[in-house]
Design a protein around this nucleic acid. Structure first.
Lengths: 239, 239
DNA sequence: CGGCGACTTGCACTGTGTTCAAGTGGAGAG
DNA sequence: CTCTCCACTTGAACACAGTGCAAGTCGCCG
């Protein structure tokens, strides 16, 4: 697993030089597949067909690499024009896109210290969000509040979804030999814990696999509820 | 900083043996102070006055240590009886406590893959949450939905708050020599980025330091709004 | 008093981020 | 055509973190 390091050429082309874009693309796909703690510079170098240390010339450090990769992700989110599709549709699309993006790249939530809330990609996203809620009629600080409420809702939902995914991946990695076995064990243990509490136990009996079965549905329902609330607030401001 | 390793005895008492509780307490306070990536076994051992490897006998692995420490945190949240204080108060208190707990221990959000959503501490918390929303009149799945909506809201809000705190701590650690300098630089950079987007720039001009100034206030406002919404939903179910 | 078992310790191995001095190849200048 | 320069790459090496291991050490029970 480590003694090889052939790391020789691939194809016949000597692959003149690395570019930052190549590196970010490779890093993101590696992060998606292996998670934040699955990324290491040597593996990244290998995937790029170059020495691990070559990456440093382009991105400076691993932290910076992650920051750059994270910022990149915000460009996956479309920016629908509210005066063409209506603010409500625009808001729904942006929230759903964000949720999908975070579900695709769960590591972003783990790296929030660096970049989830800062950087140009996020700024571009925020600015358009504000445009949408201003179109909806929210003025100044109210637009910020409305946007923040929806954003926060999406974040929390994605975090819940990502937690499960992350745990599964960790079990799959650590499960020596039989991964499905490890996952099954974990589920059994969770069931055992739940059995000690009356209301959770009741869920186990009735719902079975249905408990928390459709997070996407719950998300859409909740999102529409929040937008309903905002809309009502906007139409009849006080009381 | 590293050459010392005296790591000798402290006091005159030989401190007979470590206990798991001592270890968890020390680990939590270290995690609070230094963050998830600031915790390492040798430092923990030093703080405990014993060799780093002694910890392994009690907790098995670092991952497991973090899982145990994280689960511990749920006990910081009080479980008010809804039929004594009213469900609305109980719900508010539990949500606020959770928010405060996550703000005190931001690393828990980074470690969500292990334990944020699982383990006995969380189960105990969830069970009581369900009790509250069932008291409020939500039946079965509706109680789950209501509890999840509020929980998710708290999670998202805490994640936002924690992101800032985490970034600040990272800058403070990496800021070679002048930490305040590094923080100032980062703020200046954020301002520069915001200036490139019309609506964010407008916020910079008018709000100044007020932009995102009182996350706790925003949280309480949003929380009450959600509870209002739930209450309305509960009183007049459909339409 | 002798041993047994809970607990501790130092060493060493591995894997990972990062630095550094030494290349290397292609493009432009002469 | 050749020389030179510089953007870029490379391999070795260092520091540090997680952790397994074999050898203790200490107190208690028979």
């Amino acid at each position: 697993m480590n003694g090889v390091q052939v790391q020789g050429y691939r194809e016949s082309m000597p692959r003149s030089t690395l570019t930052r874009e190549q590196i970010l693309t490779a890093a993101i796909s590696l992060l998606d597949a292996e998670g934040l703690e699955g990324l290491n510079m040597r593996a990244l170098g290998q995937r790029l067909g170059s020495a691990a240390t070559a990456v440093y010339w382009h991105v400076g450090s691993k932290d910076n690499l992650i920051a750059l990769a994270g910022d990149q992700l915000w460009h996956e989110i479309a920016l629908p024009a509210p005066d063409e599709v209506g603010w409500r549709t625009a808001a729904t699309v942006m929230a759903s896109d964000l949720y999908a993006m975070l579900t695709r790249h769960p590591w972003l939530l783990q790296a929030f210290g660096s970049l989830l809330m800062f950087g140009p990609g996020k700024a571009r996203h925020d600015d358009h969000l504000l445009a949408i809620y201003e179109t909806a009629g929210f003025a100044g600080p109210a637009a910020d509040q409305a946007a923040a409420a929806v954003f926060t809702f999406v974040l929390g939902n994605a975090l819940g979804t990502a937690a499960t995914a992350s745990l599964t991946r960790k079990l799959r990695r650590e499960g020596s030999g039989d991964a499905e076995q490890a996952i099954g064990d974990a589920q059994a243990e969770a069931r055992e814990i739940a059995a000690q509490f009356p209301r959770l136990r009741a869920r186990l009996d009735t719902d079975g696999a249905d408990y928390g079965a459709a997070p996407d549905n719950t998300f859409q329902l909740g999102l529409q509820a929040i937008l309903d609330g905002l809309e009502a607030l906007q139409r009849g401001p006080t009381r």
